[in-house]
Simulated assay, not measured.
Amino acid sequence: MPAQTRTPPATLVDTFNTVPAEEALASLLACLNSLCWARRVADHRPYPTVDALLAACDEAAYDLTAADLTEALAAETSPVLPEDAYEAAHTALSAAHAAYEARFGHAFVICLDGTPRNEALDRVLEGIRSRLTNDPEDERVLAADELRRLARGRLMSRLRGAGNCATSPDGTTPGT
């Protein structure tokens, strides 16, 4: 009886590498609304691993021009509180967001990946209050870094949603 060969399962990055360019671009724009960033990442496909894709995303994010950053920030919305948060928290966060937007001209962005749900409110309020004291240029640098981190998390979520399993049985994220 001849030995059967099995096709290895597709990796997380395989689907991203093989979708039409327009679909890849749309997925990337959902991660970070900068056309320059999305084109740069999409145009360099195929990527050999998820780690290589994420590194390319980071590099493209670090290279955002002031106009690219403004474009990306304009599309962001401030983090929202869960429905079950107490009313005073909603009031405090609304006031903080308004003050931040008045000072910096864009939504407050913060990456909460890995933050336990019960700590998210405190992290957002602490972050927005501490960043309100920043110089506008320093804040743009911090906001750009938060956008980069958000884009990474959003991209990983999109890759997982493409019918791929994003974690191994041991709970780790595969790098291939």
Rank of each mutant, 00 (worst) to 15 (best):
residue 17 N to F: 03
residue 18 T to D: 05
residue 20 P to S: 08
residue 20 P to V: 10
residue 21 A to T: 07
residue 21 A to H: 12
residue 21 A to Q: 11
residue 21 A to Y: 09
residue 22 E to H: 08
residue 23 E to F: 03
residue 25 L to I: 09
residue 25 L to H: 11
residue 27 S to E: 03
residue 27 S to H: 02
residue 27 S to N: 05
residue 28 L to V: 04
residue 28 L to Q: 00
residue 29 L to K: 07
residue 30 A to E: 11
residue 30 A to S: 13
residue 31 C to W: 00
residue 31 C to K: 00
residue 31 C to I: 01
residue 32 L to D: 01
residue 33 N to D: 15
residue 34 S to M: 14
residue 36 C to N: 11
residue 36 C to K: 13
residue 36 C to E: 08
residue 36 C to T: 14
residue 36 C to M: 09
residue 38 A to L: 09
residue 39 R to I: 10
residue 39 R to V: 11
residue 40 R to Y: 06
residue 41 V to L: 06
residue 41 V to H: 02
residue 41 V to K: 01
residue 41 V to W: 02
residue 42 A to P: 00
residue 44 H to Y: 03
residue 44 H to V: 03
residue 44 H to L: 13
residue 44 H to K: 10
residue 44 H to P: 00
residue 46 P to M: 06
residue 46 P to F: 04
residue 47 Y to S: 04
residue 47 Y to V: 07
residue 48 P to N: 08
residue 49 T to R: 08
residue 52 A to D: 08
residue 52 A to M: 07
residue 53 L to V: 05
residue 53 L to Q: 06
residue 54 L to K: 05
residue 54 L to N: 10
residue 57 C to K: 03
residue 57 C to F: 03
residue 57 C to A: 15
residue 58 D to G: 14
residue 58 D to E: 09
residue 59 E to A: 15
residue 59 E to S: 14
residue 61 A to F: 08
residue 62 Y to E: 14
residue 63 D to Q: 15
residue 64 L to E: 05
residue 65 T to K: 14
residue 65 T to I: 14
residue 66 A to T: 15
residue 66 A to L: 12
residue 67 A to C: 09
residue 67 A to M: 10
residue 67 A to K: 14
residue 68 D to H: 11
residue 69 L to M: 13
residue 70 T to G: 10
residue 70 T to D: 14
residue 71 E to A: 14
residue 72 A to E: 11
residue 75 A to C: 10
residue 76 E to D: 12
residue 77 T to I: 13
residue 77 T to E: 14
residue 77 T to F: 15
residue 78 S to F: 09
residue 78 S to M: 09
residue 79 P to A: 08
residue 79 P to Y: 10
residue 82 P to G: 07
residue 85 A to C: 05
residue 85 A to G: 01
residue 85 A to Y: 03
residue 86 Y to M: 02
residue 87 E to L: 08
residue 87 E to I: 12
residue 88 A to C: 00
residue 88 A to I: 00
residue 89 A to I: 00
residue 89 A to L: 05
residue 90 H to D: 04
residue 91 T to Y: 04
residue 92 A to V: 02
residue 92 A to R: 12
residue 93 L to I: 03
residue 93 L to S: 01
residue 93 L to R: 01
residue 94 S to Y: 08
residue 94 S to F: 09
residue 94 S to L: 07
residue 95 A to T: 05
residue 95 A to I: 02
residue 95 A to V: 04
residue 96 A to Y: 01
residue 97 H to C: 07
residue 97 H to P: 00
residue 98 A to M: 06
residue 99 A to R: 13
residue 99 A to T: 08
residue 99 A to M: 03
residue 102 A to S: 10
residue 102 A to D: 06
residue 102 A to K: 11
residue 103 R to Q: 08
residue 104 F to T: 09
residue 105 G to H: 12
residue 108 F to S: 06
residue 108 F to H: 13
residue 110 I to E: 07
residue 111 C to L: 06
residue 111 C to Y: 11
residue 111 C to M: 05
residue 112 L to H: 08
residue 113 D to Q: 12
residue 113 D to L: 12
residue 115 T to L: 05
residue 115 T to P: 03
residue 116 P to C: 00
residue 117 R to F: 01
residue 117 R to Y: 01
